[in-house]
Write a protein that binds this DNA or RNA. Sequence first.
DNA 1: AAAAAAC
Length: 501
Amino acid sequence: MTTFADLGLSQKVLSAVTDSGYTTPTPIQAGAIPPALARRDILGIAQTGTGKTASFVLPMLTLLEKGRARARMPRTLILEPTRELAAQVAENFEKYGKNHKLNVALLIGGVSFDEQDRKLERGADVLICTPGRLLDHCERGKLLMTGVEILVIDEADRMLDMGFIPDIERIAKLIPFTRQTLFFSATMPPEIQKLADRFLQNPERIEVAPPSSTAKTVTQRFVATHSKDYEKRATLRDLIRAQDDLKNAIIFCNRKVDVADLFRSLDRHGFSVGALHGDMDQRARTTMLANFKENKLTLLVASDVAARGLDIPDVSHVFNFDVPIHAEDYVHRIGRTGRAGRSGAAFTLVSKRDGKFVDAIEKLIDQKVEWLSGGIEDLPPVAESEERERPRNGRDRGGRDRDRDRSRGRNKGEARATETRTETVEIEEKVEAVKAERKAEGRPQNNPARNPRAANHAAPRPANDDNRDRRNRYRRDEDDGPTPLGFGDEIPAFMLIAGKA
DNA sequence: AAAAAAC
């Protein structure tokens, strides 16, 4: 059997791989590493979860040992479609490059330029980027890419979906054409093939089957639900509570606003929950993902930003709050669980209007998905009592609901979750408290604009700092019951936050 | 019916 030692990797790389506990390469690694080391172009058709990242990181590290470093010139460039994926690849570089003295620069949007600029000035050997920020650096004249020897285009099909191809073409023009190019895509539709033909010279083509673990180790179920948002939220809560082997879960919504809404709803119901979508500020995204990975959060409500490629080894459950509009997304989403041979469960809430999407999914995965308990036709009619059960005053709702849940002895994890509310909320509450106190004392608030140094000492920004989120945070949920007298849909801004104009 | 990415 092939081992990593047979592939021609350097001692430094091999020892880091061994330290990580790996002995046997995956098919994509065994197929791509030897030709990559021989300076061949690579066309890798592989999904995430196949060990794809290591299949380019390991040979790149070995090749970087051979050439000579040119002053302040990056020698390798990796392009990723999302910031989280870029960060994940950077982590891999640190892990497998621990015996190397390489400077890795992560150039992604949503964070300040300063630190990235400093890294570039010190001289970075490896750039790991999202396209927009990289081009921004280039346009500012801070970055010369004429020394790049290896270009990696990862997740090419997704780059295409996201409209990144023009950016990729521009970037490719800034790099010598004598470069070696490693090109990866999960699928090979004609557009991608054309793209590959343009970017690659006589590539070695390696195609690996999608990880079969998805189909084999993930238990998939459809769950019938009424279609109103609050009904779906209730269905979801019952479903989560009914799981006795739930370790952690990602809950996917189709839209960012729904991620925000569902996050707040679950949080108010006392679940240990975080959120992840592209309109959140980068700090919040990073924190949320880190906390989820470290099991400080049990649930992560996410948009499809988290559907592909994110490597969280241990997700026990995936819930689709919304049926994905594109069937491929379903495959990517449920692929977040059942990884590395572990078992996983994937539940998809389905309401009447989702019929055709459900059909498309079953067609794509070529199997029928069982219903958890009866189909949509078997749903009991909307219970009027449920309407009445909802509290009159939305403000008291969270506490009362939790008490009710507790007295029913419903959930073990949930009471604990009540105490460990998400850090986001805690941070935000702290910030508001400090601000309110200042205002009460009549002291001026920190104004970073007036006093730039104050910014460094200011209270931490709320983790979930997106303006839209902030407004929505105080907008009342549909399941909060009737609006209190005297307020419209929105509680007046002055009652909410001191400061924010 | 969406999401993602630069300011």
